[in-house]
């Protein structure tokens, strides 16, 4: 069964217009980490029609992932997340090119050519810092983090903004798994995706500006960096 872009994107075209939709279709985004944040970010990007998605993740689906990692179900437990994610995203939107990348995120990580936006959906600071250090100069870097009912989103211009490692210096990773709620992950992922759409439209909203979200009392504030 096939359809046209006009039909598939009929509900968003009145909001964005055809020119912006074409721009999304030309976009290339790398999603690092396909877990609580990344599974939803990647899914929304695919549903929106972003042209090419690179995915990076070394993990396997586990039971505690299922409360928030929206691409996976019970039958996926034990499978490589990236394999499941590629198949699910292809099933959602076959017009989007979804490319899995193997390898650990570190300084030696080689970015494919043409990546416009790097999306930090990782779950630990050392890997996040490595991802930013390896990111292409001049590209966009969207960071997201979530813990309990709190989270944040930030956009950096690689090579121009303060490096992620300078902003978040001194943080240590907890030895235990962090608490994350289903709604917390989905809301932060949704805000990250909103920012990615803005970036691809050439108008970032969170450049050098952390959006800090508190769900316990539905509060958000901004922190300039």
């Amino acid at each position: 069964m096939s359809t046209t872009p006009a039909q598939r994107y009929a509900r968003q075209l009145p909001v964005w217009g055809e020119q912006r939709q074409r721009r999304l279709a030309q976009g290339t985004v790398l999603v690092a980490g396909v877990g609580g944040l990344g599974a939803t970010v990647a899914q929304l990007l695919a549903r929106a029609g972003v042209g090419r998605l690179y995915l990076v993740d070394e993990g396997r689906v586990d039971w505690p992932d299922l409360n928030r990692q929206t691409l996976y179900g019970e039958g996926d437990v034990g499978r490589a997340k990236i394999d499941v994610a590629v198949a699910r995203l292809a099933a959602i939107n076959s017009k989007v090119e979804v490319i899995p990348l193997s390898g650990r995120i570190d300084e030696a990580f080689v970015f494919p050519a043409g990546v416009e936006v790097v999306v930090d959906c990782l779950d630990n600071w050392p890997s996040r810092f490595s991802l930013h250090r390896a990111s292409p100069v001049g590209g966009w870097f969207v960071h997201g983090g979530v813990q309990g009912e709190q989270g944040q989103v930030l956009t950096l211009k690689v090579g121009t903004s303060q490096p992620l490692e300078r902003i978040f210096a001194g943080l240590a990773q907890a030895s235990e798994p962090l608490p994350v709620t289903p709604d917390g992950a989905a809301i932060i992922a949704g805000l990250m995706t909103n920012e990615i759409f803005a970036l691809l439209g050439g108008a970032p909203k969170l450049l050098d500006r952390i959006l800090v979200v508190g769900l316990a009392d539905l509060h958000w504030t901004f922190l300039e960096v």
Binding site: D123, G144, G170, L178, I210, L223
Partner: peptide, 28 residues
């Protein structure tokens, strides 16, 4: 600017400064 890259807790604070205390979410 993160005080880790300044003088840590001994970082001098100029008049008119803004100081932010932020425990960020670490999970993904």
């Amino acid at each position: 600017h993160n005080i880790h890259h300044l003088a840590g807790l001994a970082t001098p604070i100029p008049d008119g400064a803004t100081v932010a205390l932020f425990p960020p979410g670490a999970g993904g």
